[in-house]
Design a protein around this nucleic acid. Structure first.
Lengths: 199, 199
DNA sequence: GTCTATATGCCGATAGAC
DNA sequence: GTCTATCGGCATATAGAC
């Protein structure tokens, strides 16, 4: 077995292994043995770096949230022009991920579903917070572009994104993300900026 | 322990118990002991009526699908007038369910998430089929009302329904189903019937 | 048809050596 | 810091009595 000298490296390796295993099979359906083995370590070492499986699961969701937010907002922000164009780019990024091998749905919705009988679980709280963070970014961009009804529009965009992901998981058919993208464009189009509408 | 004489009654009782237990905790996170105990029977009797836990899980999802479709389509159909009004009633029915104690999200999305590493599982197939059945009803109603683009509109309605349910599970806030209902109204309004638009 | 009792295996977490 | 070995519990599924 490999024996890294620096504890932070070992911790990161365990987190990377947890990400693969938990995302592939679900948290409750994975064992800490699987995670440790994937990291090339033993269970006992895992428990040296993490106090419990629940704590490891929470760290996994938190790390996923950071990476996912950076990827989604990055894909949207890489496009110049109005907010509607950025939203279209975000839906395209979602579709690209979802059509790749190994894609297994939204880890945050899946975590909320897995631990529906433990709503206070730290992993569930991180999952909810992730969605709130994306919604807050939507809202800030809508305000920046002068949209009226930014609160409702941001909620509708969240509904469209998560609805598209749910359908993609159920049917594995990109037609649903296309439909969601068009719905987002229609909603943003009909709720034009008041400044533009009054000119 | 109660000893019903008719096997069909016992089977139904086990199915009712499975519905409660599986929906409350998830399928993989429930034991057949829990289900049998909830039914007032023993595990051995459960295995007399069902060949395996997987088979029981599939029967649970199938039964949930029948009841859910009847309830949703019934709530929509109880409203007179155009299809848009029926859709609004459907979103209201979803919100009423979701704000009741014991509501734990969409069992079909949750099942697809739980068994994401077993996509051929019978329970997963029933869950996908359930969504396809609701989408087919949407499409038939859209055709009946003379909407153009009924295929895309039906997909968008599915995205909005499941997106609303996902947000309701994550945040337990009916503002998201309200937002989804308004988005559905806006999409149906801007995609008016070609007959009405050309008159 | 329903029961008690059990086979067999995996789980999360820990003891103690080095 | 990482290892080998193990504890106690619970899982699905089955044996055999009545």
């Amino acid at each position: 077995m490999a024996r890294p000298k620096h504890p932070q490296e070992t911790r990161q390796r365990l987190l990377a292994a947890a990400d693969e295993v938990f995302y592939a099979h679900g948290i409750r359906n994975s064992s800490v043995d699987e995670v440790a083995q994937r990291a090339g370590l033993t269970k006992r070492t895992l428990y040296y770096h993490f106090p419990s499986k629940d704590n490891l699961a929470a760290a996994y969701v938190q790390q996923r949230s950071d990476l996912t937010l950076a990827r989604l907002i990055g894909a949207a922000s890489s496009v110049a022009g109005p907010f509607a164009a950025k939203v279209a780019a975000l839906f395209d990024a979602v579709e690209r991920s979802a059509t790749q091998a190994g894609w297994n749905g939204c880890p945050f919705i899946r975590t909320a579903g897995e631990f529906v009988d433990e709503p206070r679980h730290e992993a569930v709280r991180h999952a909810s917070q992730h969605k709130k963070n994306l919604e807050a970014w939507f809202q800030a961009e809508l305000v920046k572009d002068g949209y009226a009804g930014h609160q409702r529009l941001a909620r509708q965009l969240m509904v469209l994104v998560d609805g598209a992901v749910a359908q993609l998981l159920l049917h594995r058919d990109p037609a649903y993300s296309q439909a969601a993208k068009q719905a987002a464009a229609a909603l943003l189009g009909s709720a034009r900026r008041p400044a533009a509408a009054s000119r």
